[in-house]
Design a protein around this nucleic acid. Structure first.
Lengths: 197, 197
DNA sequence: TAATTAAATGAACGTTCGTTCTTTTAATAG
DNA sequence: CTATTAAAAGAACGAACGTTCATTTAATTA
């Protein structure tokens, strides 16, 4: 009925993010109640509102946080010497980053529809920024259709998060290798052994 | 307050399927209420229960119906003369079928998690049956990893439904052509102009 | 035409939802 | 040490949820 011993706001806020992310990814935003989140955190429902004003604000924070981190991570990658290596680098980066954060990815691709208009626009803008990285790389290739090729590649890569589970038959490195080859094949580069970037 | 003039059960049942499919695809199963569906159909809430016993039963019917049609449609395709043409045929079939039914596809890939365990198992079984068609075709190719290649191809193809809108820049036929080429490239077949199946 | 069945109504059920409020107490600042 | 703030509790709010039920009337069958 009162503040609990040892409680620190930032700790609880972090737990709220972690638990709500997992729950949203598992059941979908609409199917998760604030009470479910509170139970997972180990706290009363009303305590959640000390950290996030609404359920929607919590979702918005999770999504923008993920997209900003993703964009930043790519921008910190070294510049590749040519367009073929750049594409391979992107494929490897995307797979590597995404299979380690399956919940964030799933949420980002699935729950944009749960956002109110303004929030949706902001998130969509971030997603377009990231996708532009790939289309820029593809500009140096001779393709039937650049936009569709970009969408096809992103679909292929992102789809990996729907079935990848750590500790499965293949290591993350092996999966990265296989996908890198598949992506290069897609755009007509059939080098037998792509370089590991 | 009573049966309305001109009301026929099968008509209403069809409208329930059509409207609930669109609503579920747009907002997600959990975010759609029976009242929303009833409003879209133009009927009171309780009338829905003359046709489906629960909300879950309605979802199950939509999903199983879609998967059964999909499997049947593929089984009715003619047998291709060789494995390369078979893969191209599958890619074209999958794209063609899926971009004409974006709502069903989206629902089938997204709302399996909304199913109760028994229903989930049944649907998963149907999905595995369909995916087995592709892995069987890939058995005749020399691949780094057949299972992953199958998942990558399905991800790439199915992803098309997330952005394709009728009346866009490209026709369905052009999209089919582009994806067919991308899929063949993926498995190392770089024929400049794939046959149209 | 009379009896039966099918289709829809609107009110109501108990539950759960997101959120707010008051109160209590731990952590922190002066 | 005292005052203040931060973090939690638990009860309560009206609204919306899936579902049920008794009732009414159209369509169908005998």
């Amino acid at each position: 009925m009162a503040r609990t011993s040892g409680s620190i706001g930032s700790k609880t806020a972090g737990a709220i993010r972690t638990q709500s992310l997992a729950l949203f990814a598992d059941h979908g935003y609409a199917a998760v109640s604030m009470r479910m989140i509170a139970d997972a955190v180990g706290v009363g429902v009303s305590a959640l509102y000390n950290h996030y004003p609404t359920k929607q604000a919590l979702l918005v924070h999770l999504l923008t946080d993920h997209m900003q981190r993703l964009i930043l991570a790519w921008e910190n990658q070294p510049t590749a010497p040519d367009h073929i290596l750049a594409l391979e680098q992107f494929a490897r980066f995307h797979i590597r980053y995404h299979i380690t954060k399956p919940d964030e990815v799933f949420l980002s691709y699935m729950e944009l529809r749960a956002l109110e208009p303004d929030n949706f626009a902001a998130l969509n803008h971030l997603r377009n920024r990231y996708e532009a990285f790939l289309t820029a790389i593809l500009r140096d290739f001779d393709l039937q259709d650049r936009k569709i090729t970009a969408m096809a590649i992103l679909g292929m890569l992102t789809g990996a998060t729907t079935w990848y589970k750590p500790g499965g038959r293949l290591s993350a490195q092996e999966i990265e290798d296989i996908y890198a080859r598949l992506v290069l094949n897609c755009v007509g580069i059939t080098t037998k052994e792509p370089a590991h970037v």
